[in-house]
Amino acid sequence: MNSFSIKYIIQFLVLVLIQVLVLDHVLLLGYINPYIYILFILMLPFDINRIYILFIGFLLGISIDFFNDTGGVHAASTLLIAYLRPFILRLSFGLSYDYKSINLKKADFKKQFLYVVIMVFIHHLLMFSLEYFSVNYVLDILKNTIYSTIFSSILIIIILRLFKT
């Protein structure tokens, strides 16, 4: 086990603990809950094996589910963004993704913003759809997705900017 993987294990644990012990109990304006744990998926090295990232996504999501009593809601949504990540990277960073030379923290703000917002939006949309699990709640699903996407994205971008090193 090298220092590289230890760094990621610590990151994983810290993000899960912050999410389940602090953020899940902070409801902004009464019902908006920010989800920042997916930052882990966003920050993984861009050339990581696609099999690994699927397993990591599933594991990350199910850890959150174990605290929130939500079955497999977080597992499914985190798995989906883990699977879609290469496509979204190409979409938001363009050609440079293929050269494996981009650095998320030092990237152009516009590209970074696009990447974070698309990933967060897809994750939140599937998560709220599975959580409500009924077509009767379409408007609530959309409302919650949009509000939570705004808050989660702002938090994630602030964290990325703060810890630039």
Partner: peptide, 27 residues
């Protein structure tokens, strides 16, 4: 792999929405 893991998570989600089903994922 994606389809298999995704199917497992969806199955767990559906289970969490039904009352009186043994739930493996629980706090």
């Amino acid at each position: 792999l994606f389809v298999v893991l995704f199917a497992i998570s969806i199955q767990l989600s559906i289970q969490s929405h039904t009352y009186h089903k043994s739930k493996w994922v629980s706090s």
